[in-house]
Nucleic acid binder design. Structure first.
Lengths: 115, 115
DNA sequence: TCGCCAGTTGTGAAATTTTTCAACTCTTGT
DNA sequence: ACAAGAGTTGAAAAATTTCACAACTGGCGA
């Protein structure tokens, strides 16, 4: 039977699932509607197999679905609005950036290492 | 001047920062108002130094602030409305859990205490 | 000043995640 | 049936994160 996972842990896993640039971009692209892997690949610069790996993470978490249409695979958001989540995140992000030099420093630093 | 970090990367870092059970619990506790480390430690079962490390992650990201009051350190949400983000996450989580009976039950149960 | 209490920080090992490359599955056109 | 195109998967290396322990800082009362 299913083991009982504390809610705070489910939340943490959910956020961790979101915590990757490629996965974020996929989710944002899918907000405009379902999209074949080929188009995702064109929009996001990443190796095809790497994209597949990230798509697998999203699939496993259940936030997206994949359906095969002939030779191409089409991804779509599984359910509700990820959009609202993204908006909330952006609000907090801009708030933090506006109010605090700390984040700005952090962001600059992160940029330097990620080039 | 600093070149800007792509938004999707800032978002990914933000979500990654949220992706840890202890950090989630801290943020949820702080939604009821500022709280000294001592109380966080009492509420969350974790080694003191481990909690400190997670608090440091939150601090660095800028989502919480720490102020010293005599011998105790008090943490508070830096700004905004983390609550809304958590609500959005919970909505999606609930929706996704629709296919997984065990998790669904747990989410419904927790609904009452709104954590 | 000394000792203690509340937290934090450094360090290194353990665990997890990300990336890459090759091999593999499916489907379709010839 | 075969080859090619579209994606996925397995596996190992590389990078990151987490955790526990010890050492450390700052404030306060004796």
């Amino acid at each position: 039977m299913a083991r009982r996972v504390p809610l705070y842990q489910a939340k943490a896993e959910f956020f961790r699932m979101l915590g990757h640039p490629v996965r974020i971009r996929v989710l944002e692209l899918l907000q405009d509607g379902p999209m074949p892997v080929r188009d995702l690949l064109a929009a996001i610069e990443v190796e095809s197999s790497n994209l597949s790996q990230q798509l697998a993470v999203l699939r496993r978490s259940g936030i997206v679905t994949a359906t095969r249409d002939g030779p191409t695979v089409v991804y779509a958001l599984a359910g509700g609005d990820v959009a609202e989540l993204m908006r909330a995140a952006r609000r907090i992000l801009t708030e933090m950036a506006a109010g605090q030099a700390g984040l700005l420093a952090e962001l600059r630093e992160a940029e330097a290492s990620a080039s």
